[in-house]
Structures are given as structure tokens and as C-alpha cells.
Nucleic acid binder design. Structure first.
Lengths: 224, 224
DNA sequence: CCGATACTTTAGTATTCAATTGAATACTCG
DNA sequence: CGAGTATTCAATTGAATACTAAAGTATCGG
């Protein structure tokens, strides 16, 4: 094996990872799997794909070792293989956000200008938490809250928010968060809350980034 | 534009980056471009591709905004678009190294067990540098040294090392480095030096990682 | 303006592979 | 077994890919 063969073999191996990242649906799966484990059927539903097709995509991700799975009874649950995988997806997002004007355009056109959501970054949120003058609100679906959430966060899924407003103290500032920067739940929550006279802001990242940074999280009993 | 369309559009955009990363030659280019600017012809030669083909690959990388180029006279010089791009490639490598057994196998089979090269990490190297009890040796080709090197490093390309041994003080420890973890230059250098009775070790990363970490570097006059 | 050099683009080809679907098969559990 | 979940298979469709040879573009020195 010469130099060239060595390099070729090596880069070929790495390009398998690139290929796994070359499909939109698979990227969406990575994003979802960063929240919690999902069964194949759940993923299929969430992404609007057939189960068979979803299974195929998962196979590609598994071949590149980006996800792993475990069987529990009838269900097979998938998860990210590794923290590094989410870091990789973050690195991809950072390159994209910084360089692909298209992405800006898409986000802007759908989410509008998000500056009025008074974004809070991780450092600021930690400060607020330390002084205990904020309610942190997890507006993701309950299963994701259960699988892990910012320590001390309350769960009100965004689609129940209007009917459960009574649970919230109108005098305390609220910071809502969801899956990540492209998830709209927190944006919607802030909008609803602001309209009702609450002081509400958005945490700019989501649960996965928080956890990855090593900041305090909690899980429901019995989840790994 | 509904939720689904938004997500589809967004992930589709990001998957363009994945596609650009899905080819071995293009990954090799990224690795090379992390060292310095290269003209198309140089890249073609280094990767053993035709110029036309190289140009095509560069076009894909440019479309994904991973590289940028400037013209200087007859030549077009390519460089990484951004630090983030190298970070992305690093994230990919980390996932691969951690999870693809194939990669271990390939590296091992070509480079053998590298533990006897007494690897030095960045922290240890900084310590050694502070106490000034080490010679740092850049064994990459001269053009790459010129474009940027660890502050204080001496340049002896590995293919001139045997004939230029006289320039090295036999009493001081030597730390050799090259392009990065899969570059063989430093391994070869350490082997040569050890065989001649020098105390030589290998810096585990390469120039790009050092620079990215914000550690001190130097450039030849007149290079950006 | 010529000719030389470096690069890009075009067009074409062969190949590959990618995404998806529906049916068949496997696995697990009651 | 039968029901539910997941994977695999086979087949289709449609692209995308990698590459080459040749034509085209840009730049520069004369």
C-alpha cells in the first residue's frame, strides 16, 4: 500500500460520512434524534415518510455510524451514536448559516425577523437562572421534555400553551426554548406570551446545545 | 410556506454541504487548502487528477461555499472560505475516528503503531516551548511553511532531512509536525531522527489545528 | 493583436447510485 | 398463531457523479 492508496482509502472512508449527510431527510433525523430516542414509526410520521423509506435512511446513517439503535419489545429505538455526531451537525449548521445566503433567506422568509423575540444566549440564561428571576419554559412535546430538559424548566407544549396560560405567573419573565435554532415552537410561544402581556424571550439555542455544553439538565425518572 | 416546506427547504440547503463532503477527492482538497492557498494545477498534481476534473470538484466546493478563490495573473488560488470549514472537517474526522473501525484499520496498517513516536499534544508542546527546551521542526514542503507555521519552528522538508541533519543540534529534543493527523511527513521525520540518535517526537496534530486554536504562528513576509 | 499559459465550461458518456415503493420476511410478544 | 413493528428485497425511476476531450475565457508578455 503506497502513500496514494493510503490517502485514497482514508478519504474514501470519511466520504461515507459525507454521503450520509447529503440528504435532507437524514439531517432532519439527526436533528430529531438529538432530542430523544425515536422509534422508526415515530420518525416516519414526523418526517412524513413511509416506514420502509425511513428504515432505509436509518440504515445509511447506521452504516456511517452516526446513529445506533436498541430493540425494546416490538420497537426499535434510534439515537445519535455519540455527542460528536451532534457536534458535526452543529459544525455543518455553522458553516451553512455563515456562508449560504439561501439559508438566511429561508429562515427570514418563514420566521420573519426574530430580533423582537429578545433572544437570550446561554451565558445570559445562566445568569438569570442563578438569580432565580426567570421561568424557563420547555415548549417541546412532552416526550422530549421527559427525555431531558434544562434543569428547573417547566413543560408546557406549545400547542397547549393558550389553554394553560393560567399556570404561569404574569409577573416573572419567561424564557422559552425548544429543539434548536430552526425549531419554531419557542418562537410561537414567545409570540403568544407577548401578545398576552407576559414578558417572554427566546433562548437562542435548544436543548441539545445546552446539554452538549455541559450545563445542568434533568431527566424523568427511568430514562437512561 | 408551511412548516413542512420550511423544514424541507432548510434541510435541503444544508444537505448541499453534505453533498460537497461526499467525495474523497474533495475532502483531500479541504485538507490541503487548510495548509495554504493552492492553484488549480497544484491541487490537480497533488491529488493525481486532471486539471479539468479538479476544476469541477472545486466548483462543487465553491457552490457549497466551502472554498473561495482569487485570481492572480494567470493563476487562480483557492483557499478555505472560513475557519468554520476546517472545524467542520475536524468534526467529521472526529466522528470517523471514534466510530469507523475501518479508519483505525487503514491508519494502523499503513502507519503502524504510532505510539513509539512519543506523541506530544498541544498543551505539552506549549509547555516545552515556554521552557525553550525543544526545537520545533516543520517538515512540510516549503510553500506551506511560508504560508504559515508554528511560531519559532524551523523548516526542513522531510525529503531533505537526511542531507540536512547537520543543521540540527543533537542535544536538544525535537518535535516534528506536518499537515495533520493523517500526514505521514512527521512520522517519517521522527523515524529518521530517532534512527540517528536524536530525541525526536511527533506533535499529534498539524499546523491547521494549531492555528485554529489560536496558538502563536508566523508567516513569511508578504503572505496575507 | 499573438501566442502561451492557466483555468473554466461544455457536452458527452458511462456509470453509479439515490430515493422511493410495495411486497415479502423477520422479530417479538401476548 | 396473530398482531404489530421493523427490515429487507426487488424493482423502478430518475438523477447525479465522475470523468474526459475539446472548446472557450482570461491574463499577460511581447
Amino acid at each position: 500500500m503506497g502513500h496514494r492508496d493510503f490517502k485514497d482509502a482514508l478519504y474514501a472512508e470519511f466520504s461515507r460520512i459525507g454521503r450520509a449527510l447529503a440528504n435532507p431527510h437524514r439531517l432532519e433525523f439527526l436533528d430529531l434524534l438529538a432530542q430523544r430516542e425515536w422509534s422508526v414509526e415515530e420518525l416516519a410520521q414526523e418526517a412524513h415518510l413511509s416506514v420502509a423509506n425511513t428504515s432505509q435512511h436509518l440504515k445509511v446513517l447506521r452504516a456511517a455510524q452516526l446513529v445506533s439503535s436498541r430493540r425494546e419489545g416490538l420497537f426499535v429505538y434510534y439515537r445519535l451514536a455519540d455527542d460528536r455526531v451532534y457536534r458535526l451537525w452543529m459544525a455543518m449548521r455553522e458553516v451553512g448559516e455563515a456562508r449560504l445566503a439561501e439559508i438566511d433567506r429561508i429562515v427570514e422568509s418563514f420566521l420573519g425577523n426574530r430580533d423582537d423575540l429578545a433572544p437570550v444566549d446561554a451565558g445570559a440564561l445562566l445568569d438569570l437562572l442563578r438569580d432565580d428571576d426567570v421561568v424557563v419554559l420547555d415548549v417541546r412535546p412532552p416526550a422530549e421534555y421527559a427525555a431531558g430538559h434544562l434543569a428547573g424548566a417547566r413543560s408546557i407544549p406549545v400547542d397547549e400553551l393558550e389553554t394553560r396560560l393560567g399556570e404561569l405567573d404574569r409577573d416573572r419573565e419567561i424564557v422559552a426554548y425548544c429543539r434548536g435554532p430552526y425549531c419554531v415552537f419557542a418562537d410561537e410561544a414567545v409570540e403568544i406570551l407577548s401578545a398576552r402581556g407576559y414578558r417572554a424571550r427566546r433562548y437562542v439555542h435548544g436543548y441539545p446545545e445546552w446539554e452538549l455544553a455541559g450545563f445542568p439538565v434533568e431527566r424523568e425518572r427511568g430514562i437512561e
